[in-house]
């Protein structure tokens, strides 16, 4: 695996993404979710909301890097809060 040039931050990132996907799969198996309409303008499933949240988080990090000098951990915290809100009320 050394050819993949792993680093601790990227490994942690992928572990978190994998845990999210496994967690969502277990959640869906234990308590199946359905498409519904929240504050987003479209009706979504849990998976849709996770995808939208992750994509928005990626863009938020890029925007912060391009336009501000903010430390990225602040952006990450805001994105985590946004993702939780999106999954619950989105």
């Amino acid at each position: 695996m050394s050819w993949m040039a792993w680093t601790l931050p990227t490994a942690s990132f992928f572990v978190i993404i994998a845990l999210m996907l496994v967690g969502m799969s277990i959640w869906q198996t234990v308590s199946p979710g359905h498409q519904r309409k929240g504050f987003l303008p479209i009706s979504t499933t849990r998976g849709d909301r996770l995808f939208i949240g992750l994509l928005a988080a990626a863009y938020a990090h890029l925007l912060a890097l391009a336009l501000t000098g903010w430390p990225l951990w602040i952006v990450t915290l805001v994105c985590v809060a946004g993702l939780i809100a999106l999954l619950k009320w989105g």
Partner: peptide, 11 residues
Amino acid sequence: MTVVNYSVQDI
């Protein structure tokens, strides 16, 4: 995943 790893390094 390899591309992500490369993107944070001078390699």
